[in-house]
Design a protein around this nucleic acid. Structure first.
Lengths: 210, 210
DNA sequence: AATTATATGTAACAGTTGTTACGCTTATAA
DNA sequence: TTATAAGCGTAACAACTGTTACATATAATT
């Protein structure tokens, strides 16, 4: 674990902090699709992403979903931070988008380190800043883009975090992430294919115009 | 200024910190409609709200606006925090919704206090948490509600922060805040009036069903 | 091989939102 | 007072999105 820490967080944290994380952190291998956090959960520890990607989702009272953004290596979940430090329930759902490796750090340590390590403090504040920016981007996407543009952005983002222009996904799954219906997605996908931006196959989509 | 500080932030900060804020902070009286922050601005100081309310807006490349939320007394702008500590440009616009009193604190002090006062650290983290929640609520509103529901929520929120069920606003201004057209707003307002939820007048709207 | 479940394509129609156009009213300025 | 601008109401239509229905294709199961 120490190796992964140094590789992914060495440039951020001083050696002493890396050592501490190594001592109290738990290394976890998460399979694709695994639900890491559910809405309403009390968070007891905080994830530091080593590799892979995590999808962050919002849900309304009727159970309708909406993707907010993806988190990648070197990131942490600022929502989790927020919940931990505020001792409140999670307002989002987190699902492993790919096979993911991460290090879990217990809350108590997080708070302790805030006073102890300047680099940790900076990391926490920077994480908040990044997540804030990503929430704003999510708002831009929902508020200012039409569904066809949102769809194409979604496909490109998904290809990006998967490091693969071939996306394994069904129209129904996309519809759930974008909070619309399967028929709408099928229709728009077909148009994107005609425009030469993607290629459609059963259970997967190739993004051409990346 | 000391009096306002103790009244609004006394329960949050220790006396020593209140004193420090009193020494380095600048008291400001802001008139309704004054633009406090523009997108792209570098922020040099952070506002602590004493009274009044501030409207936070997002804008896309075409200049289309969208309201994110209102900030009220006892709050600060976490976006500003974020920008200050990250030394980056503002991603939002801030406009005084009502006449507003606030205390401006220079950046250098903000950072210094993070290490020095636990209560300040807690305040900063709590502010991030609050703003994150408000961004999520904004997303819920845009993504899950129809325009008529968004409009009614907007009117109620506006009545709330103005402490007045009579809102001084034109249909055109509402349309800008909600990123739609004047005609759409007029249409939906008329329906709300027929439903007995509001009363329409020239330049103002009375919210009945608060 | 036949059956079943899942995934996709497409048409037809409904509902919501956006646009254009124009008339009327109220406030402000000349 | 008259002219002009700003605010609002409404109709007609267009564009986009959502819904229902059904056909076809592919994969998984028996």
């Amino acid at each position: 674990m120490l190796e992964e820490l140094q590789q992914n967080y060495g440039y951020l944290f001083e050696d002493e902090l890396i050592q501490e994380i190594n001592n109290v952190g738990t290394y976890k291998d998460i399979p694709e699709g695994f639900k890491l956090i559910e809405i309403g959960d009390y968070i007891k520890s905080m994830p530091l992403l080593v590799s892979g990607a995590i999808k962050i989702l919002r849900e309304d009272e009727d159970g309708d979903e909406l993707i907010l953004y993806f988190i990648e290596q070197g990131d942490t979940c600022a929502m989790t931070l927020s919940c931990c430090l505020g001792n409140s329930k999670s307002e989002i759902r987190a699902v492993a988008e790919t096979d993911t490796k991460l290090i879990m750090v217990p809350i108590v340590k997080m708070e302790e380190w805030l006073g102890k390590y300047k680099s940790w403090q900076k990391f926490v504040l920077q994480s908040y800043h990044n997540r804030m920016s990503e929430l704003l981007e999510a708002i831009d996407t929902i508020a200012f883009l039409k569904m066809d543009q949102r769809l194409f952005k979604y496909l490109k983002d998904k290809a990006m975090v998967n490091h693969n222009e071939v996306i394994h996904v069904t129209h129904q799954e996309i519809a759930r992430d974008l909070h619309t219906s399967r028929v709408v997605i099928s229709r728009l996908l077909k148009t994107l294919e005609i425009d030469g931006k993607i290629k459609l196959h059963r259970n997967n989509i190739t993004v051409i115009d990346l």
